[in-house]
């Protein structure tokens, strides 16, 4: 690929290739330890969790029992949390990606009054500490009675400034002005142009923002921690952390450890799967054919 053919077969090349792969493998082991640990631990009973070596399976395969405990503990509230997480992440992810695509397209392809100022505001937004926002959002939403409803998590999560920035850059790059102008000459209105021409070419960018926003909501902890107070509305992150706090506080919650392990595994599998599936999708460049680079 990137190699000048003369060196590709030389001994020194093969040698360096071996050592660099070893360097990668070392970091891979480090990356994999916690994931391996959660896989191993979720197969153990609570007793084995503390009685056997943490990084290897015990003889007793307790995985299905743990799953059953996970989904039945406290009247099966974990499945409720899982559904909440899916609801919050899907709605926020799709909404945030769509709005970011609209906005990024506007910033990339139009001239309008206040463009520089509003774009600077969007960029500056990444510097704002979460607490500076989440606490006043809590106070404001409690005035309108939205605290402790799904909206309290979904609405703020729809605002995803990095997505706007990403879509602007993506539209600058992947969508030529001439293509939009061709649409105008063809007599199409701007909304028609967006959905029939532009959006198709922005799809890889959209998919990227979608997955980033989806994961941001799936993994969010601080926002739901503050804005939700009834256990029925919790996402997995908040719920599991409460069980974990109970387990580590030493006040009789120690039986929860293996349930927390199983819950952790269940909560990371969908995100990893989403990344792996989407990974292939956003690699493809749809815009290569009609407009030359």
């Amino acid at each position: 690929m990137a190699i000048v053919s003369k060196t590709a077969n030389s001994a020194s090349f093969r040698n360096s290739r071996r050592w660099l792969t070893v360097a990668l493998a070392l970091y891979f082991i480090y990356t994999f330890i916690p994931i391996f640990y959660v896989i191993v631990s979720s197969t153990k009973s609570n007793a084995d969790l503390f009685g056997t070596f943490g990084l290897w399976f015990s003889g007793d395969f307790h995985f299905w029992q743990n799953l059953q405990d996970l989904f039945t503990y406290q009247d099966g509230i974990f499945s409720r949390w899982l559904l909440n997480t899916i609801l919050y992440s899907v709605v926020s992810g799709v909404g945030a990606a769509l709005f970011a695509t609209f906005a990024g397209y506007a910033f990339s392809k139009f001239e309008f009054v206040g463009k520089k100022l509003s774009f600077a505001l969007v960029l500056g937004a990444v510097m704002i500490p979460q607490t500076a926002l989440v606490i006043p959002i809590f106070l404001l939403l409690s005035k309108v009675g939205l605290v402790n409803t799904p909206w309290a998590v979904i609405l703020p999560s729809l605002v995803f400034p990095p997505g706007v920035f990403l879509m602007k850059v993506y539209a600058d790059d992947a969508l030529s002005n001439e293509l939009i102008e061709a649409g105008r000459v063809d007599g199409a209105g701007e909304v028609h142009i967006f959905f029939n021409i532009a959006f198709r070419l922005l799809t890889p960018g959209f998919a990227t923002v979608l997955i980033l926003a989806f994961v941001a909501t799936w993994n969010n902890y601080f926002l739901p921690l503050v804005l939700l107070n009834s256990s029925d509305n919790f996402p997995v992150t908040v719920g599991l952390s409460q069980w974990y706090a109970l387990a580590t506080s030493g006040s009789g919650g120690a039986v929860l450890f293996s349930i927390v392990m199983a819950g952790s595994l269940v909560s990371i599998v969908p995100v990893i799967a989403a990344f792996l599936i989407m990974q292939r999708y956003w690699q493809g460049g749809l815009g290569a054919g009609g407009v030359k680079a």
């Binding site: 001439e178 649409g183 070419l201 009609g290």
Partner: peptide, 26 residues
């Protein structure tokens, strides 16, 4: 008016027929 662009500005996701039809469809 009609315009022919430097980069051709063909809609990459449409067929040749789709490209030529678009203005008339609109």
């Amino acid at each position: 008016l009609a315009m022919v662009f430097q980069s051709y500005a063909l809609y990459p996701h449409k067929t040749i027929r789709g490209n030529m039809s678009f203005g008339l469809e609109v």
